[in-house]
Design a binder for these strands. Structure first.
Lengths: 341, 341
DNA sequence: ATGAAAGCGCTAACAG
DNA sequence: CTGTTAGCGCTTTCAT
């Protein structure tokens, strides 16, 4: 990219207004000690020349960017897209803009180091850690404001806002069991039982069964990724293998969407033949037909906490102990599950 | 934010490795003319000190950031979130990262000037112009690579990738009329007939009626925003006012989602009593029950074109005439509409 | 209330 | 193959 034509700099404005660059800077940043007449002259020159601050230069010199980053595994997952919207509203109220980028699927070779150096471009960072190795997180300079979000319960030196995965999954499963289900398929279960989201939700699934005294058939746990297609395939797989089930706990609403389609294709009625519940309470859930029962993981509380913690770091410096907040999960009962009798 | 602890700079690495900063720079950027031994020493020092490039400095000096921006009205709209995913894949293949930010809903006072200066932080910009005044676009320095996307057909000095709104809407409506519908409600129609997306789609709706020799009842056009709730309310409003309709053309799939829910609440069966078709072919469409018929606005073609045009500008400089590409719209017939007999 | 000087951390251009 | 010089456009500091 060449700067073929004119790139108006602060010096140009200063010259045109017959002042120093410092005065221009003061006007632009609304600093008090500038005469009214001078200010007018500078503003005129600015709009005259069509000047715009060079944020790279400002950033280099001043250190701040006015931008917070939101780094998520995938841009198109409704949960993250909707989180982004909530955070954007809130940060804008603090005079900060938010930009969203994805961490997942970065090419091999452009290692996480690249990602992490990019993240330093921000005044603060909201980071959804899902797949990435916690060890890599130490790459982040610990003096820049970071709030972790999401599921993984990692002992960390960062502020961390989590959803209550275990309890949410327990509520979802308990609801199915309370309405008569006895063979609850779990879609998304992941065999490597670390402390990641699938494991936590699987734990809740287990707890509910224990509480209800219902045994778990391991065949009802279907490992899949968190896409609609995978949810669809998971149900197909159960049906094709002749594994009976009377309810489905999908580890995310997106997976539930796929499951619902597969059930319809198999002429299984929801909720009469098979109940379905998801997790995340995405915006689409209440509009599905039948409306999707789900677990609201405390969207508003999480967004509020994230912003509060990050703003505290940005304004107050390193501050004290890292906080770890857990938002409450709430069962949202809709048409894909039967009412409790 | 204070740089309380150590901020490792390139000079530190150079000192520690016993070379000049230039050599460090050469190593980091993979430039060829560096001895193998030196390279090793530098890399060791880098990982030793935990050095990370300061992108602000690089940007200021080199002019490039390795980042393209995607500016959209709202982060949570599925169409944009899914577009972002497609673009991210493609740009990464060119060694560029993509970040997404929203243009809509910026606070009054922090004018568009702020937005536009931010956008200069990118090597290139993909800009979805929907509501913003074309006049403001001139704020963008015309020497920085920009590709406009979306609907509005504005004569512009920028590369512009559009979907074929008129023809897509015509196909959608024609399909409904061909399958026997005679009173097609249009959801999202906007009375101010400028060249924006609702107007273009409304135009296609009109064309199809003319072609089929079916008159349009203006009462069937319901103005609404592009949210599920508005789609829901629009259908309710028709029903409450006793306006009969046998099909619905929702100007976006999101609106269709709301409409489907409202129809279900009114015990109107889809597609037996009322057919429904949307526009955008969002990822969720095939998974709904019944699956949502829609217009695929040429997702892949658009993404390919956007990337090609932007890369051409980034690599080739201002280049020649601004291009204007229109992706072909395709009818995707699914379960919410009846097959043509 | 305004200005002069210095330099943030990096890289382009040239020397050696 | 490696180093030197200069400076990107802004803001901090200190002077006036």
């Amino acid at each position: 990219m060449k700067k073929g034509t004119t790139v108006v700099t602060m010096a140009d404005v200063a010259r045109s207004a017959g002042v120093s660059t410092m005065t221009v800077s003061n006007v632009i940043n609304g600093r008090p000690r500038v005469g009214a007449a001078t200010r007018e002259r500078v503003l005129a020159a600015i709009s005259d020349l069509g000047y715009q601050v060079n944020l790279a230069a400002r950033h280099l010199r001043a250190g701040r960017t006015g931008v917070v980053g939101l780094a998520v595994p995938e841009l198109e997952r409704p949960y993250f897209a909707q989180l982004a919207g909530r955070l954007a509203d809130r940060f804008e109220a603090h005079g900060l803009r938010i930009v969203m980028e994805r961490t997942g699927a970065s090419r091999e070779g452009e290692a996480d180091a690249v990602v992490f150096s990019r993240l330093r471009m921000y005044d603060g960072l909201v980071l959804s850690v899902v797949d990435s190795d916690p060890a890599e997180l130490t790459q982040l300079r610990n003096d820049s404001p970071v709030v972790m979000i999401g599921e993984r319960a990692l002992p960390s030196k960062y502020d961390h806002v989590m959803m209550d995965n275990v309890d949410g999954a327990r509520q979802a499963t308990a609801h199915l069991l309370a309405t008569g289900a006895r063979r609850v398929a779990m879609l998304g279960g992941n065999p490597d039982w670390t402390a990641n989201m699938p494991a936590l939700r699987a734990q809740g699934y287990g707890l509910a069964h224990t509480d209800a005294g219902v045994p778990i058939d391991p065949e009802l746990t279907v490992r899949c990724h968190f896409t609609m297609q995978d949810g669809y395939d998971a149900i197909r797989s159960l049906i094709d293998r002749g594994i009976a089930f009377d309810a489905v706990f999908a580890l995310t609403d997106v997976v539930a969407l796929g499951a619902l389609r597969a059930l319809a294709d198999a002429n299984l009625r929801v909720p009469e033949h098979v109940q379905v519940i998801g997790f995340d309470d995405i915006d689409e859930a209440p509009y599905l037909v039948p409306a999707l029962s789900s677990i609201n993981p405390g969207h508003e509380e999480m967004a509020d906490s994230i912003v509060a913690l990050l703003m505290a770091q940005i304004n107050g410096g390193p501050g004290g102990e890292p906080q770890e907040l857990i938002a409450p999960a709430r069962l949202i009962q809709r048409g894909t599950t039967k009412p409790v009798v």
